[in-house]
Design a protein around this nucleic acid. Structure first.
Length: 210
DNA sequence: ATCCCGAGGG
DNA sequence: CCCTCTGGAT
């Protein structure tokens, strides 16, 4: 079976199994989406959702966050880890958006990745989930682990993995792929002990490094 | 001891 | 390319 056919079969199976796969972060506007996505680095979305209600009530927009005391941001986001950097990035990013982008979250990849604490992964989520603009594939730790195990890429570097996946997967499914892989990665194909006997796509997986 | 919807600096 | 930043759950 050629690799694109295999990708298509994997997609169909996962899509049938996780019909309601979506972004796990809770947000109500672009400000909240960008902030919670930055916070989600090396943290579970569940933990992010536990601190953001207080964070957004205390700092409801970019202006208030840009004027915030870094220590007060740190106090709220501390349970997420990397809190010194994340707090500093959130304050800087809020200032940058006001001064360079008139208070509006940019719609271009080149602009987004100039913001403090924003890389391709975060930018892809904001563009796709926030604006409906598909500019790439979200490669987080789950996407990386699963696509490597499936045998869809042999790279370790997130950008190289993204390039490989962009050749293989249909563009109109890029967002869904990320959510499906994240769901499957959490429930079955987890990092420590993948549950291959209960995996619906075991026959389609190359089981690299398992 | 390992992992979580990474990014930035060297 | 490598390293560091970080707390909480498992």
């Amino acid at each position: 079976m050629n690799i694109k056919t295999r990708c298509n079969d994997i997609y169909e199976m996962l899509n049938k199994h996780y019909p309601d796969a979506r972004c796990g972060l809770e947000f109500h506007n672009l400000y909240q989406l960008l902030v919670s996505t930055v916070l989600s680095a090396q943290a579970t979305d569940k933990k992010v959702n536990e601190v953001t209600p207080v964070l957004f009530k205390t700092f409801p927009d970019f202006k208030s966050l840009s004027e915030a005391d870094v220590a007060s941001i740190e106090e709220i986001i501390k349970p997420l880890g990397f809190f010194h950097q994340k707090a500093k990035n959130l304050k800087s990013l809020s200032t940058e958006i006001q001064k360079k982008f008139n208070g509006i979250v940019p719609k271009k990849m080149e602009s987004l990745i100039t913001l403090s604490g924003v890389g391709r992964k975060t930018a892809n989520i904001v563009l796709g989930t926030g604006y409906g603009i598909i500019s790439g594939i979200v490669v987080d730790t789950h996407v990386k682990r699963l696509t490597r195990r499936f045998g869809l890429t042999r790279h370790e570097d997130a950008e190289k993995i993204e390039t490989d996946l962009m050749q293989l997967l249909d563009k109109d499914r890029w967002i869904d792929w990320s959510h499906l892989l994240i769901n499957h990665g959490r429930k079955v194909c987890n990092a420590r002990k993948p549950d291959c006997t209960n995996c619906i796509i075991e026959s389609l997986c190359m089981k690299i490094d398992i």
